[in-house]
Each structure stands twice: as structure tokens, then as C-alpha cells.
Nucleic acid binder design. Structure first.
Length: 985
RNA sequence: GCUGAAGUGGUGGAAUUGGUAGACACGUUGGACUUAAAAUCCAAUGGCCAUUAUGGCCGUGCGGGUUCAAGUCCCGCCUUCAGUACCA
């Protein structure tokens, strides 16, 4: 019987689906284990072989854990809100829901065909109203919460209101807007409801505020910081500008310290933790207040400049101050004489885009404001400058410049001839600043002289606090996350407006579902696409979404609306990360319409034991979801404030692109990779040029060659495209007018050689390999094994279809252990010692490998085992039965088929994992490699239970040793029992 | 610049954590089977030298060091990839 993988795989996939083999129950006598994948965005292109890498790894682990006797939760779903479906809708008018549904069907078919053990009964889709009902619900919970810094947790907003009513806000330590004003209880109680609401917004964990956002005009939406790469949008590469807009924000900054501390408690990769630490960007230092000296004329009111510094110990080295050009005090303090210069400078920096500013960090620019500030200790005047090396968005947008201790301050001072006082003992600062704070001794600094960094810092902060001119402060780079998107295909907010103030829709009326719109672009008045909906107002009396016509006001919800109780709804939608921040918990109880999940379910599954996904989400999804989890923990909804105990980043599988080259001067001619290489080799350049000229019939002397991607499906394993491939390629890509030029040898054989290069796998690079093709030709089990075999999980590695024959022939060999030409060959005969040794060696290795996530070496272990069993002619059921269980996580289809052939009725998937027995590996003798000063080497077989001394004596007495030593006396003999003998001369 | 990861045959990659480097696979070469191809099987395959067999020398990015023993540990460099950045 032949190994007919196509039939076998289809058969078992149908069996698993029919019997719900992988359905997980929310209670069990078995211990639980939760294996999670990052759910995919269902794009129109479908899966390529790179996508399932992490899913295969997690599936192997999930299947292994089932064999180990765990109740395994291994769910899958779709992150189905997103830009591409909406862009497609804008172009074609097709509703994103339809596109998404189609794409999901393709994904599901492709995933099923690989044989994953997902519990599909728990599937979630972020775009499903039943799911996003709970995304909206969490939003409401965030709105109704504030962050109590004293308790270090989120609390209900009603607690805050009570405290305002009783004592005002002076004693409240909260994470809130910096600009919040102090008020007493009496003042609070006297405020209008609208004023109160406005103040509360400054405390809520999700709030509406005028913020400077990253606006992408081409996409017509704002982007989060992590959605911008090198100053352009991650999707599409469009330019991004700064713009002020009223937006929803998430007060993630309240959780900065806990997000940082939490990293210590979880088993995530160092590089990923480091990315998050950098993103949170904690720096410890001090806030220092510098009073601005009143200008001689005008008698300005006393202004102060507040700065943040990590080096308060260098305060006596301050020789100037620098403000960001956008700093709010710049206009007020600039003297009339300097006004023109300062304004010109501000205008010049405003013209420079963010990108230019980043690219050009070398040039020192700035302007003097003419104003001076007073040093808190020396009371001497310090000139105030502006310079674009100071960023408005970090710290206070102002720095105290210490040129001797900071290279940027140093460069600035040199450029503008500002004095550089040296406050470090025994340090030369004539060439550059001295930035090493570990080896600092402060000098020329009054009461700080002779102190090191730590002591000086402590003393300065005490002194500043005593003066009331500063205090110790910790600063975080992490900004609050903008939560509004001017998009259609996202979660609608459960928000309506009364007199411009946002109101939450009561949770019992959720979900607020997306309205139908005529077109998916912004409205003519510039409002988000939801502004196109005719039905999109909230009726507070009947509690439902109703026609816009019933609502008088277009945006604010004016007084007239109050008469009929109909108010406008929020027109923005939530960003992509909203839905993905809670899906891992929702899988535990995905069909619950009463609660986000039952306490029973969350207490059973608790948290994710293993999470596998790409590292590209390091500062996006993986940070936001931790924030939501901590919030849910504060609300008592989840038992852990970290949701994923262990996380592994799988690497990417890259494509191997193929290139030929277009002659820039003669775009109708393409040359082969071989000819290109000849042309670029000085020795063969003229020859290559002669060949090219024969075709172009021209006197080309120097040509420019542009690489053109050839679709890899036309290229054979020798990197060649044959005549029929060329023809097909030209037809498919409208290159019929093109003429190919190859080397003489290529022309003779009618082929074109391509050059290869490794790139990210992508449709536009024509290097995509489709798993459908692989499954058809080699089977899903081959695909699974090969993806693992390619290399360590975390590593980036190129795909090379040619290599798959290795694992495929392994499967065929495995099959032949059970079936040969004469039929089923497994018998009840007794296993030999050699059989048992191979089996137990394999059990041990496989178990160790899987537990270390070293999936690539397991495949080798399988191959070795099968080769050994084949040469042992092993046909014992006692061996071949457990072997299948070992293989089944990797190649589940063939394992099920052979398991059935062995006479089992049930699926192999929950069979107990074979138990390793040391006794089968124990040997009585061992080969000791013997060497003398690394010179001669031979092996000697000795009993294992020999003592060190006995081994030494035996070795020295051995004839071969005596011959080799040639009468010399060894100095020392090193014996490592069971391993090695070294004779040292 | 900083942070993280990594450098091993023609290629992907192993190496029980200091103990015979190159497992396993691809590729290549030779052979068997076949009318032929495919498939399958067998053999060789780090480099150099020797060959009548047993062999010998050099080899894990580079330069040092520790050790009986280093791909692995220590010091100093180089290179590549990824993330991040006028962050005060």
C-alpha cells in the first residue's frame, strides 16, 4: 500500500471536524493548558508558507500537551477589522463585511488543510457585533474609571466624584491631565454639570482631548506612534504630519510603571522586553524651576521655566537654557531686539518636516531670545535660547543646558560661543563633553564639591525642595494612546454627545452596530465616514440608534435635541488594536452574551501559558493588551495582571526572489542573470556587451540595468526559466513585447538564468509560495515537518521548496515501517534490545526538544529513528505503536492513519505520551576516546562501572598507549568517567 | 550612538552547555535498478597532503588568554541582522 497523503489528510481533517476532537471544555479533571496564537488579519492574498510557521509550532506544542494529559485550550479567530478591506471598499464599493467574510473563508480552508488542532467552536472575529459588544463594554469601563496613584490602581469614577464633593481635588493623587486646576469641595459643588464633566474627563482612563496627533492625509486618518515607520505610515508609506484634533485617548501612561515592573514577572524574550522598556522610556531625575528674570521694560509678570533633567548633580554647570521652538513661553519672553530673529527661526523649523529634523541631527541651529533666567543657587542670570534639538513633546519641552556634561549642549555652546564651565574634577573637556556619570566627581559646585553622582543628586534635590524650586521626578517617554480613527471598518464607540460632552450608552443596549453608508470616504465637511450614515443618532428615550434627521444638531447635541431626546453619536471608530486587546480572554467563554466572560471560565483558564507570535507587535498590541489586562485586573475581572506567562517570537520565513534585468536605455530588452553577472565582471564585460549589442543592434557602451522580479513559480531548482516558462511569464505579466537576451550557452539550451536574493515574502516581489501547492504536491504533514526543519523557530530563514523532499521521503520511510509491498507488516513479535534502545533514545530526545521549543532538531531525531528502525527491520507493535505518538504532533495525519491501521478505534490525539525508561539506554561498556597532548587518538572500550583509578591503570597498561608513549612517562592522566581519557606528557 | 540577537562546509543547520566539530537534510559526484524517465536504494562529500592499508596537518569571523581539553568561558576587535534614538 502506498502512502497516499492527499486522501489520508482529507480523511482525518473531516474526522476531526466531525468528532470535534479538539473541543476544549471549561472544566476537567485534567490540568489546564492554554496555547495561544496571534490571530491573523484575513487579507485578500490568503496565506503564504510564511504565515503558518508560528501556528505549526503552537499546534505541535498543543498536541504534545494533550498527549501529556492536559486539557488544552488552543483557539483561533480573526482580527477582522482593518484598513485593507476598507481601502478595497473605497475602490470597489463592496462592503468590507463581504470582503472580510470571503477572505475568512479562504483562510479557514487554508488553515484546515494544514491540519491544525484548533477548537473552532470558540472562534472569535473582532468585527462580529457579538464580539465587539465587549470591546465597547471595556471602553465604557475605562471611561468610568480613574487612576488612584496612592492605591496604584484604577478605581470607579464615582469614588472620585465623592472625594471631590467632600474635599475638592487638592488631596487627590491621580493620573490626570497636567493642566488640571485645583478646586475645593465648595467650588466643585458649585460647578455646573458641564464643568464637572469637563473636569472629570481630565481624570478618566479614556478621555476626549484636543491632542496633537499623527495625521496621515493620504489615508485620511490618525495613526499611533507605532504605526509610523521612519516618518511615514507603516501601511502604504504615506507621509504623516502633526495636527491638532479632538480625539479619544487611552491613559496608558498611568500604567507606565506597572507595565515596566510587570516585565520582570513574565517569560518573554529579552529583546522584546527591552523594546517595551525603551518604549516606556523611564528616566529618573528631577524637575527644576528656573524663574525668568523680568525684562527691563514692560515689567513682565513672574514667569518660570520648568525643566526635566536626569543630571541634577550638574546644576552648577548650567551656562544657558534651551527651549523647544514650539514652547509656549517663547513669544512672551523674547525681547523686542531678538523678536525678528526668533520668529524667523521658528518659521524655519516649522517648515522642516519631522523627517528632515530626524535625518539632519548634525547641524546645530538655534536663536537667542534675549531673555535670562535665574539660577536657583548662584542667582546668576542664564541666557535663554531656543533650539530644535529640544523636543516639544518630551519632558517639559525645555532643558537646562550643561555643555560640559551633555554632548548636544556642548555642540550648541561651541557653535554659539557660549561659555562651557567645567564642573568635573580632573576631566578634560576641551574636545567633548564628559558624559560618564558613574565616574564623576563634582567640582566648582559650591555645596556639591567632591560628591559623586548619587550623593550630589540626592543633595541637590533636597536643596531644590527646600527652595520650592523643584523635586525628584521620574519621566516616561510613553505617551497616552490616541484611540480614534477616522475610519469606517472599525468598532463604533458607544458614545453620544449632549452639548458637546460625551455620554456613554448604557451597557445593556450594546452592541452599537456599524451603520450602513453610501460611501466609505470622509464626508464633504471632512467628517469621518460614519458621517455618511443616515441612521446614526442615539434616542435616549427609546434607547436605540435612529435616523440622523431626528437630531437637530450636526455635531454637538444642542439644547433643541433635548426636546426629542435624540443626540448625535460619535463618528470615529476604534483603532485596530482595540479588538486584539481582549480576545485572549474572550476565547475562554466566547459565546457569553451576559458577561465578557464568566468568572468560572476565567478562573479555570486563568492566563495564557504559551503565546506564539511575531515580534513586530512588540510596542503595539503586546503593550496595549497588557495595559487592558492590568485595568481588568484592577476591576477584579481577571485573576492575573499579566495575561501571557510565556511568549515566543517566531521568526519570519523569507522568500527567495528571482531577478532578470531590464536595459534602462532599451526597455524592451531583458537580460538574464548570467549575462548580468558577466556584464558586472570586468573580465567578461566587453563580451557580455557584445552579446547584448547583437540583439539591440546598437552601439550601446555603458548600460544601466534595473532588476525585474520573475515570478518564482516559473523558475526551476537550477535557477533557470525554460522556454515555456518564459512564454507563460511574458503572457501573465504583459511582457509580450519584451525580448530576452541570454548568454550563448543559455540561448543554445533555450533557458534564462535568474539571480536570486532573499527578501520578505510578498505578492509584489513575486516570491510567494502558496501552502496549497505544497499540500497538494507533498502533503500537509510534509509542510508541517519542513517548516519546523528549516531552522530554529525564532530565526529568520529563507524558504527553499527544493529541500522539502528530505522530510517527504522521511514520511515515506515511516510509512514503509508499517506497510511494505506485501501489505501491513506490523506484528506482535517481541522488540529487540536494539529496537528498545532506539525507541527510548528517541522518546527522550523528542520530549526534551519539544519542551525546549527546539522543533527543528526533533525532525532530525525522527529521521534518525526511522533510519535505524528500517535497518533493524523492526516490525514490532511494541515499538511502532509509541513511535506514532511521538510523531503525531508534527505529522498528525499519517500518525492517525497508521494508528487506525494498528487497530485503534479512537483518535491518537489524547493517547498518553510514551514514558522514557533509562534502563534501555544503559550500557555496560563505553568507548573512551584516548589522546596524548592532543596528539594520538584512539578509542578503548571499557566497562562503565570501572573506577577512575582502574581506568587510568588499564589505559596506561594498554599496548597501544605504551607504543604511542614510546617509553616516556606521562605527567598526569585525566579521566572523566563515561567520557574521556587524556594523557598529559 | 544605545539595546538585543547572531557569525560553524557549496546551502539550511546540529553539537548532551567545557569533552572525538560538521548530526540530520538539501545540493553535488559516482553506482545499482530501468528500453527510458520518474521513484527507490547504495557509496562518497570541510580543506590540504599522503595513499599499500593504517594515516598526517589545518580548520567554528579576527587577535590574544584561561584549561589536560574551547564553537562553547574571559579580554580586545571586525562584520551582519533587528529594534530604537537630538529622550535632556
Amino acid at each position: 500500500m502506498r502512502y497516499n497523503f492527499n486522501d489520508i489528510e482529507a480523511k482525518w481533517q473531516a474526522y476531526w471536524a466531525k468528532n470535534e476532537t479538539f473541543k476544549a471544555e471549561n472544566h476537567s479533571d485534567k490540568p489546564k493548558y492554554y496555547v495561544l496564537d496571534m490571530f491573523p488579519y484575513p487579507s485578500g492574498a490568503g496565506l503564504h508558507v510564511g504565515h503558518p510557521l508560528g501556528y505549526i509550532a503552537s499546534d505541535i506544542y498543543a498536541r504534545y500537551k494533550r498527549h501529556q494529559g492536559f486539557n488544552v485550550l488552543h483557539p483561533q479567530g480573526y482580527d477582522s477589522f482593518g484598513l485593507p478591506a476598507e481601502q478595497y471598499a473605497i475602490q470597489t464599493g463592496q462592503h468590507p463585511a463581504i470582503t472580510t467574510e470571503e477572505n475568512i473563508k479562504t483562510y479557514r480552508r487554508q488553515l484546515d488543510q494544514i491540519g491544525f488542532s484548533f477548537d473552532w467552536s470558540r472562534e472569535v472575529r473582532t468585527s462580529d457585533p457579538k464580539y465587539y459588544k465587549w470591546t465597547q463594554w471595556i471602553f465604557i469601563q475605562l471611561f468610568n474609571s480613574w487612576y488612584n496613584k496612592k492605591e496604584d490602581k484604577a478605581e470607579d469614577i464615582s469614588e472620585l466624584i465623592k472625594r471631590f464633593e467632600a474635599e475638592g481635588n487638592a488631596g487627590v493623587s491621580a493620573a490626570c491631565d497636567d493642566a488640571v486646576a485645583t478646586f475645593t469641595a465648595d467650588e466643585w459643588n458649585a460647578f455646573s454639570s458641564e464643568q464637572q464633566q469637563r473636569i472629570l474627563l481630565q481624570y478618566r482612563l479614556t478621555y476626549l482631548a484636543e491632542t496633537e496627533v499623527n495625521w496621515c492625509p493620504a489615508l485620511g486618518t490618525v495613526l499611533a506612534n507605532d504605526e509610523i515607520v521612519n516618518g511615514v505610515s507603516e501601511r502604504g508609506g504615506h507621509p504623516v504630519i502633526r495636527k491638532k484634533m479632538t480625539q479619544w485617548s487611552m491613559r496608558i501612561s498611568a500604567y507606565a510603571e506597572r507595565l515596566l515592573q510587570g516585565l520582570e514577572t513574565i517569560d518573554w524574550t529579552d529583546s522584546l522586553k527591552e523594546s517595551q522598556r525603551n518604549w516606556i522610556g523611564k528616566s529618573v531625575g528631577a524637575r527644576v524651576v528656573f524663574p525668568v528674570l523680568p525684562a527691563e521694560q514692560g515689567g513682565q509678570e513672574s514667569l518660570v521655566i520648568s525643566v526635566f533633567t536626569t543630571r541634577p548633580d550638574t546644576i552648577f554647570g548650567v551656562s544657558f537654557m534651551t527651549l523647544a521652538p514650539e514652547h509656549e513661553l517663547v513669544a512672551q519672553i523674547t525681547t523686542p531686539e531678538q523678536k525678528a530673529e526668533v520668529e524667523a527661526y521658528i518659521a524655519a523649523t516649522a517648515r522642516r518636516s519631522e523627517r528632515d529634523r530626524m535625518a539632519d541631527v548634525k547641524t546645530v541651529t538655534g536663536a537667542f531670545t534675549g531673555a535670562y533666567a535665574e539660577h536657583p543657587f548662584t542667582r546668576k542670570p542664564i541666557p535663554i535660547w531656543i533650539g530644535d534639538y529640544v523636543l516639544a513633546g518630551y519632558g517639559t519641552g525645555a532643558v537646562m543646558s550643561v555643555p560640559c556634561g551633555d554632548q548636544r549642549d556642548y555642540d550648541f555652546a561651541k557653535h554659539f560661543n557660549i561659555p562651557i564651565p567645567n564642573i568635573f574634577e580632573g576631566v578634560d573637556i576641551s574636545k567633548e563633553a564628559f558624559v560618564d556619570k558613574e565616574n564623576t566627581i563634582i567640582a566648582n559646585s559650591d555645596f556639591l564639591n567632591g560628591l559623586n553622582y548619587e550623593n550630589a543628586t540626592r543633595k541637590v534635590i533636597e536643596a531644590l525642595e527646600h527652595l520650592g524650586q523643584g523635586e525628584g521626578k521620574t519621566n516616561y517617554r510613553l505617551r497616552d494612546a490616541v484611540f480614534s480613527r477616522q475610519r469606517y471598518w472599525g468598532e463604533p464607540f458607544p458614545v453620544y454627545y449632549v452639548n458637546g460632552m460625551p455620554q456613554m450608552i448604557d451597557a445593556q443596549y450594546l452592541p452599537i452596530t456599524l451603520p450602513e453608508v453610501e460611501k466609505y470616504l470622509p464626508t464633504e465637511t471632512g467628517e469621518p465616514p460614519l458621517g455618511n450614515a443616515t441612521v446614526w443618532s442615539w434616542d435616549t428615550i427609546n434607547h436605540k440608534v435612529v435616523s440622523n434627521a431626528l437630531c437637530q444638531s450636526d455635531s454637538s447635541g444642542s439644547a433643541e435635541d433635548a426636546d426629542n431626546g435624540v443626540y448625535p453619536l460619535e463618528l470615529n471608530t476604534m483603532p485596530g488594536w482595540a479588538g486584539s486587546s481582549q480576545y485572549f480572554n474572550r476565547y475562554m467563554d466566547p459565546h457569553n452574551d451576559e458577561e465578557i466572560f464568566s468568572q468560572e471560565a476565567i478562573n479555570y483558564w486563568q492566563q495564557v501559558d504559551l503565546y506564539i507570535g511575531g515580534s513586530e507587535h512588540a510596542t503595539g498590541h503586546l503593550l496595549y493588551s497588557r495595559f487592558w489586562q492590568k485595568f481588568m485586573f484592577d476591576k477584579g475581572l481577571v485573576p492575573y495582571d499579566e495575561y501571557a506567562k510565556k511568549l515566543i517570537n517566531q521568526g519570519m520565513i523569507l522568500g527567495t526572489s528571482a531577478f532578470v534585468y531590464r536595459i534602462n536605455e532599451k526597455p524592451d530588452f531583458f537580460i538574464s542573470g548570467a549575462l548580468y553577472n558577466d556584464y558586472n565582471n570586468p573580465e567578461s564585460k566587453s563580451e557580455a556587451l557584445a552579446v547584448i549589442r547583437q540583439f539591440t543592434g546598437d552601439d550601446l557602451t555603458d548600460i544601466q540595468l534595473d532588476p525585474i522580479h520573475v515570478d518564482v513559480k516559473f523558475v526551476n531548482s537550477s535557477d533557470e526559466v525554460d522556454a515555456s516558462g518564459i512564454k507563460q511569464w511574458m503572457k501573465d505579466y504583459n511582457y509580450e513585447h519584451v525580448q530576452f537576451i541570454g548568454t550563448e550557452e543559455e540561448s543554445k539550451r533555450g533557458v534564462i538564468r535568474v539571480n536570486r536574493d532573499v527578501e520578505k515574502m510578498s505578492k509584489s516581489k513575486y516570491n510567494v509560495v502558496n501552502p496549497d501547492d505544497i499540500c497538494l504536491q507533498y502533503g500537509a504533514d510534509s509542510l508541517r515537518l519542513y517548516e519546523m526543519f528549516l531552522g530554529p523557530l525564532e530565526q529568520y530563514k529563507p524558504w527553499n521548496t527544493a529541500g522539502i523532499t528530505g522530510v517527504h521521503s522521511f514520511l515515506k520511510k515511516l510509512w514503509r515501517l508499517y506497510y511494505d509491498d506485501s501489505g501491513f507488516r506490523v506484528t506482535d513479535s517481541e522488540a529487540s534490545k536494539a529496537n528498545l534502545k532506539t525507541l527510548h533514545k528517541t522518546i527522550k530526545k523528542v520530549q526534551e526538544d519539544i519542551e525546549n521549543f527546539s522543533f527543528n532538531t526533533t525532525v532530525s531525531t525522527f529521521m534518525i529513528a526511522v533510519n535505524e528502525f528500517t535497518s533493524q527491520k523492526c516490525n514490532s507493535r511494541e515499538i511502532l505503536s509509541p513511535l506514532l505518538i511521538l510523531v503525531s504532533p508534527y505529522a498528525p495525519h499519517i500518525a492517525e492513519e497508521l494508528w487506525e491501521a494498528l487497530g485503534h478505534q479512537e483518535s491518537i490525539s489524547t493517547e498518553p505520551f510514551p514514558i522514557f525508561e533509562e534502563k534501555h539506554l544503559v550500557e555496560s561498556t563505553k568507548n573512551y576516546p584516548i589522546s596524548f597532548n592532543g596528539k594520538f587518538r584512539f578509542t578503548l572500550e571499557l566497562p562503565l562501572d570501572m573506577s577512575k583509578e582502574a581506568i587510568e591503570a588499564t589505559v596506561l597498561a594498554h599496548q597501544k598507549t605504551q607504543e604511542q608513549l614510546q617509553g616516556r612517562t606521562p605527567k598526569k592522566v585525566i579521566v572523566v568517567p563515561g567520557k574521556i581519557v587524556n594523557i598529559v606528557g
